[in-house]
Structure formats: C-alpha cells, structure tokens
C-alpha cells in the first residue's frame, strides 16, 4: 500500500456515463425483482392463510427458508448451483432478478399476511352476508383496506432489495461496482469510484427510506382515501 494516495477525481468524470449505466442496471435489478416479489408474494400469503393445510404448510416452509438463507448466498446458489444442476447458463441479470424476486416474495408474503390479518374478520363477514362471493369480498373489501397497512412495509422490502441489488456485481452483473472494479484494476484509483458509487446508492436508499418515513406518518395520521 502506498502511504500517500494520489487522489484523482478525473477518473470519475471520465467514467460518468458508465456509472450512470451501472446505476440504471442496479435500479433495474431491484425493480424487476420487486415486481416478481409483489406478484409471487400474494399467492404465497393467500396459501399460507388458506384452509388447505398442505398448501399453508408449504407456503410457511417457503417463506421461512427463503427468509433464513442469506440473499448473498442464495444469489450464488441460483447462479452457480442451479445452473450446474440443470446444466443451463443463466445470464447474470436473470439470476440476480430471480434471486431478489424469490427472496423478496417471501418477505412480501409476510407483509401481505400481516395486512390481511389486520383486517377485522367482521369486514369479511359483512361482505359475505350481503351476498358477495369470496373473490368479490377479497377484492372489494379486504384488499383495499389491507393495501393501506401493507404500503409502508412494502417500501421497506423494496429498500431491502435495493440493498441486495448493490452486490449483484459479484456474479458479474455490470453495475457501478463492476465498473469501479474494472476501472480501478486499470488505473489503481479504487477510492474515488467506489466512493461515488457508494454515495449514489446511499442517496437512493436513503431517499426511498425517507419516503417510507413520510408515508408512515401520513398513514398513521388518519384515513387516507384510496
């Protein structure tokens, strides 16, 4: 290690386009992963709360396992493990979104479950009593009310996925860190690029986390028309 490190911020400006592209990829991974989590989490939550014992048990195992295994390990498992098992080559981006999406779906299932359980059973009773069928009761009465409760923790799950999306470069997704790694191998200026990449991601996660904070305050203040 050289005791006197020579700062060269020029390297950041030289690679600004690449950094922007890297950020875009990070956000893409997080957003696609979140979409998978949102879609997959609901059926898991419904299965968990449903009256079919076997499905409920399976859903429970699914959430427990996926929440128990570190996302970082799961990412390797999907990218190297599954690929080796099925002898297919997953693209890094696909593996990353899959890993994030599946892990996210386990967390979302718990969020959905919490929201659905928080609704007074009388609401469902009243909806059924007036002749709505179960699907209508769920869609028109339970889900809209649960949505309000679900919103803040959902954004929290997204923040979690965003943090997870910061390390997908380890399987070769070309995000900001991937670029920083490659460039600093060439120019020996790791501090500048890593700092900028880090600060940008901190800014993004804090912004989203701040949004949750405001949201929670707003929602706890009273009724929000949906």
């Amino acid at each position: 290690m050289t005791p006197a490190y020579h700062f060269d911020w020029g390297v950041v400006f030289a690679n600004i386009g690449g950094l922007a592209k890297g950020l875009e990829i990070t956000l893409e991974v997080a957003l696609v992963g979140m979409a998978v989590a949102l879609l997959l989490g609901l059926p898991v939550a419904i299965a968990r709360l449903g009256r079919f014992r076997l499905l409920s048990w399976l859903a429970n195992v699914y959430t427990q396992v996926l929440r128990g295994v570190p996302l970082f390990v799961f990412l390797f498992w999907v990218y190297y493990g599954i690929a080796a098992l099925l002898s297919i080559a997953l693209k890094p981006f696909t593996a990353a979104t899959l890993a994030l999406g599946l892990t996210g779906s386990a967390y979302m299932a718990e969020v959905y479950r919490g929201g659905l359980q928080a609704i007074d059973p009388g609401q469902r009773e009243a909806a059924l009593a007036m002749g709505l069928n179960r699907a209508q009761a769920f869609r028109s009465v339970i889900l809209p009310q649960a949505a309000r409760i679900i919103l803040p923790p959902t954004v929290n799950v997204f923040v979690g996925l965003l943090k997870g999306a910061t390390f997908v470069s380890v399987i070769g997704v070309a995000d900001m860190f991937y670029l920083a790694q490659i460039v600093s191998l060439r120019t020996f200026t790791p501090f500048e690029l890593y700092s900028v990449a880090g600060l940008v991601l901190v800014a993004v996660t804090t912004a989203v986390a701040g949004f949750v904070f405001v949201l929670e305050r707003r929602l706890s203040r009273g009724r929000v028309a949906i």
């Binding site: 009388g122 009593a129 309000r148």
Partner: peptide, 24 residues
Amino acid sequence: EQRELVKLRAEVGMVFQHFNIFPH
C-alpha cells in the same frame, strides 16, 4: 356451493353489533 349460498345471502340482510361497515 359458495355460489349457491350467495343466492341465499342476497335475500337475507344482516346488521352487526360492531357495524362492520367498510371504512375505505
């Protein structure tokens, strides 16, 4: 079965102790 019961429930109105009106 549930679809059958819906016919019955549509003809029977019910009012509850805790109102159970839909807050949203």
